[in-house]
Design a protein around this nucleic acid. Structure first.
Length: 315
RNA sequence: CGCGGAGUAGAGCAAUCCGGUAGCUCGUCGGGCUCAUAACCCGGAGGUUGUAGGUUCAAAUCCUAUCUCCGCAA
């Protein structure tokens, strides 16, 4: 079976690699165009492209698949099946209809929950104890196609989105091979989604990462790990940005002003809105490298009354 | 030439404006105290201040160049 692969970020790479290593005929790889990135605005190729080049696979980076462009490219490689994993583009109907076996998508949630752009982040932010991966037969809607296979995956209380990314992409690769096996064998079963239970999540914004210290310690902890490592959670310290990379729930109660810091024994505790504390374990002041809480406390010389999240500069 | 912060002991910072013995917190090593400890006390080691030039009696500090790291923006 001739397979075309569409994907862009790190998450997609294990799926592509699995296809190649399983001996499938990957006849073409689609990903987003190279984009300028970083301070120098240097062009960087997407991870999927790097992986494709490593295997000497033909790469296509069309700006759009619409207006017949997608079909034109598919005609060059005539795939029987298209695999889509976090490609980042909507596939137009003529592309969806082109391959004999249609287009199959790997989505990092248990559909119909968390349709859309950032399912892993939201599962963690919402404090879910479980998520998973779904393979589905794509239709014209946004993650609305019939479900083929699912695999569940527990979320630990300190798991970050990045942790889940790694685990789910590995699960996705496994699920993908299994799905293709069933399609080839003709044993694939399509289960329509229960659309009444569908939820859709949007793209993340940086503003989302601003911590509101009047929220509960658990809510804040979920936000910090859910937004790690991108776009990240942050607050203000003496008017300057302070990124929060990792945190732990503390069993200590903290009935001070929400955002008030309690430095103790090399640990950095912060009072939250529910009179509980969160322990910040790794952070990064504006313009500095990331550091452990102990290192931060060594040089920061925090006074007892310091409150995070306030925009005023204290002397 | 997008805007900005920063390179000082193993870590995080101070001293830089106004040149004059490089200091603090922690770690580390040794000793002491204690039923005991991540606690406390005493002591030690560890620096050609990112690099290269320049000014000066004297440069971490002033001037010039250069490398690296990071925040914002994209």
């Amino acid at each position: 079976m001739r397979i075309a692969f569409m994907g862009t970020p790190d998450f997609s790479v294990p799926c592509l690699r699995a296809l190649v290593e399983a001996g499938h005929a990957v006849v073409g790889v689609f990903c987003q165009p190279d984009k300028p990135v970083g301070r120098k605005q240097e062009l960087k190729m997407p991870p999927v492209k790097e992986e494709a080049l490593r295997h000497n696979l033909p790469v296509f980076q069309p700006k759009s698949l619409r207006n017949g462009e997608g079909v034109r490219l598919l005609q060059e490689i005539s795939p029987d099946l298209v695999i889509v994993v976090a490609y980042g583009k909507i596939l137009p109907p003529d592309v969806l209809a082109f391959p004999k076996y249609g287009c199959v998508n790997i989505h990092a949630s248990l559909l119909p929950k968390y349709r859309g752009a950032s399912p892993i982040h939201w599962a963690v932010i919402n404090g879910d104890s479980e998520t998973g991966v779904t393979s589905m037969q794509m239709d014209e809607g946004m993650d609305t196609g019939d479900i083929l296979l699912t695999e569940r995956c527990p979320i630990g209380i300190n798991d970050t989105t990045e942790d889940l990314f790694d685990r789910l992409s590995a699960i996705g690769a496994k699920l993908l091979l299994k799905t293709i096996e069933q399609i080839e064998a003709g044993t694939a079963v399509r289960i329509p989604q229960d659309h009444t239970k569908a939820t859709t999540v949007s793209l993340l914004t940086k503003e989302l990462g601003t911590i509101d210290w009047t929220q509960s310690a658990l809510t804040i902890h979920n936000k910090i790990r859910g937004l790690y490592s991108w776009p990240g959670a942050h607050t203000l310290l003496n008017g300057k940005l302070l990124k929060l990379h990792h945190s732990l729930l503390s069993d200590k109660s903290g009935n001070g002003t929400p955002g008030a810091v309690i430095p103790a024994n090399g640990k950095l505790l912060v009072c939250c809105g529910d009179n509980r504390c969160i322990e910040l374990t790794e952070l990064q002041p504006e313009g500095k490298k990331r550091m452990t809480a102990a290192a931060f406390l060594n040089g920061a010389h925090l006074s007892a009354g310091t409150v995070l999240g306030e925009n005023e500069v204290k002397s």
